[in-house]
Each structure stands twice: as C-alpha cells, then as structure tokens.
Write a protein that binds this DNA or RNA. Structure first.
Length: 245
DNA sequence: TGCCATGTTAAACT
DNA sequence: GAGTTTAACATGGC
C-alpha cells in the first residue's frame, strides 16, 4: 500500500476521526498504549509515506513499510494480528504489519513539509536546490530520497523518468536544470494521477514503464535492471530515455 | 508453489 | 568513527 498517494487516501478516510477522542488503544505495536488514550486527535497529516496522527504534545506515526495495511470500521475480526487499533465514538481504525512510533517532538521540526510532493507546502525550487547539492548521486536514487521527494516510491520513480525521457543512469549533475524541473514537476503531477487511478482500482492499467516489456513509444524492449545505491527495480527504454553528457 | 515486491531501519561489516 | 553492506521485518500477488 506504500507510496505517497496511498497514504493520501488513508488520510482522507481517517479524517473523520479528527477532533475525536481516542477511547481505546490496543495492539502489538511496541509503544506505550496508555499514552494516546483519552487524548484528542487534533490533526491528521501525511508526510510522504507516513501517516501522522497528532495529539496534544504527542504524535502517532504510522509507516506502512512494504506490506502494511489498514481498515476502518472492521465488521468481522480479521485473522491477522492487529498492530494498532484505535477506538473512537464514531468508529474504529485498525493498522496491520506497519511500523508504529510515538513522537514527542514537534512534527514540523522533524519533517520538512516542503519536501512532500503531494503536500500544500511542496516547494519545487527547494527540491531543485537540494538536487544541486548532490550532483554525483544517481537520479534514480535521488528520486527515492524522502528528504527531497517525500512520497515518491519505486513505481513513481520509474514512471516519471520514462515520462520525462530521462535515463535512470544519469547522475543528477549531468541532467539539464530544465529537465530536473520537469521531473520535479511530474513528481507531483504523477502522484495526483496515481491517486485518482488508485481510487478507481486501475493503477496498473496506466503504467507505461513499470513492469512493462515493450516501450509504447518506439516498440523496443523495456529494460529491467537493479540500479543505483538502492538497487531497486528500474524499468526504462534505452532508446527513448536520454543519457546526458 | 516459490519467488519477489509500492520500504525502511539497524545491526554487522570494512 | 565513518561509510557501506546485509538482515530483518512479514503479506499477497503472480
């Protein structure tokens, strides 16, 4: 469930608990379950792939990692064990196989919200500035850097590189600034498209590079390689995507 | 059926 | 101590 848009959907579904008091907290998460009880959710935010349930002077941070899931208002008790269950007067939310942490620091200090590609405070020039500081980093690693493009995951990485015709082999410094701007712009645009497709359960239908075998543009094969420091699955067209020198 | 993947952290190494 | 590599986590889809 993990890239930014999936968390955006979760936030939309959970927003009904904003302003509500936590009546019960239970589950196998390694946190002090007594701390959130009887506290009110004053805000529900996301920072990239993380959900932030803000209480007064305490934030519950949920990270779905690779296999996390959740449900709201579960009718029948699920077989899987509950990592965290929060009960409110107007319903329940359950989280499974995710990372749960309690943050005591101010989330505005912990997270740079201008890096969240789907956030209201997203600041593209700032992202470009950060890229210019890591010219030697491979672009496919840079896109996955949550401090620069919070919320971008491996699918979005592959799709926006294909869309902007930038070859994943490029180090950041080789790419013209005009193209970096185009890429950063697409990070946000594609994320919101991803969001709409995901809601309609037709996300995969729109993939042009990720898991694909053939390039829609030139009919040549799409290459699959494990690239960069992160060695993540990378799909690209050797013909359409440009290596800059 | 077994492999692999939308991700990150922390331990274990050089 | 730094930087880098590996293991761990754990579910569902193909």
């Amino acid at each position: 469930m993990p890239e930014g848009p999936s968390l955006y959907i979760l936030k939309e579904q959970a927003i009904r608990f904003k302003g509500k008091k936590i009546l019960l907290a239970e589950g196998n998460a390694a946190i002090d379950m007594s701390l959130p009880v009887n506290k009110k959710i004053i805000d529900i935010r996301t920072w990239g792939k993380q959900l932030l349930l803000c209480l007064p002077e305490l934030t519950i941070r949920i990270h779905m990692l690779m296999f996390g899931s959740y449900s709201i208002d579960e009718q029948t008790k699920p077989a899987k064990s509950t990592r965290l269950h929060l009960k409110f007067s107007n319903g329940d939310i359950y989280f499974y196989t995710c990372s749960v942490k309690l943050l005591k620091e101010d989330v505005n200090k912990l997270y740079d919200f201008t890096a969240d590609v789907m956030g209201d405070e997203w600041n593209q020039p700032k992202a470009i500035k950060k890229l210019k500081a890591i010219t030697g980093t491979n672009i496919c690693d840079a896109l996955l850097d949550q401090q620069i493009f919070s919320g971008v995951g491996n699918i979005i990485k592959n799709e926006i590189l294909y869309r902007t015709k930038i070859h994943p082999y490029n180090p950041v410094g080789a790419i013209p600034v005009r193209k970096l701007n185009e890429l950063a712009k697409q990070a946000r645009i594609y994320s919101f498209e991803f969001l709409e497709w995901k809601k309609k359960f037709e996300l995969k239908k729109h993939w042009l590079a990720h898991t694909k075998k053939t390039c829609q543009r030139c009919n040549l094969p799409i290459i699959k390689e494990y690239i960069g420091k992160t060695k993540r699955r990378t799909f690209f067209c050797n013909n359409c995507q440009v290596i800059y020198h």
